[in-house]
Amino acid sequence: MALTITCPVCGKRNGYEFRYGGEDKGPRPVEEGMTPRSWCDYVHMNACVAGVQKEWWCHKNGCGAWFTIHRNTLTNLEVEGVEVTS
């Protein structure tokens, strides 16, 4: 329970109030010309970064907002001071 996450609405809170929403992969691509592989890349494939990554979280037991933060996967700690809006 040691992870804390800074919600843009509610501030720094216990990490277990939040739901992880995946690596930040950018907005939904347009459907035209989408191949099975490129779609699969968007939906399923992950970079599995060992270090700081930009990722989505939802304050599910709080205000319900979705937002991005930077977090270090080697320490399980939010990295603050990086810009946090997408």
Partner: peptide, 12 residues
């Protein structure tokens, strides 16, 4: 459900 709606419209 609320999360689901907001997740899929989060860039919009």
């Amino acid at each position: 459900t609320a999360e689901w709606f907001r997740y899929h419209t989060r860039y919009d």
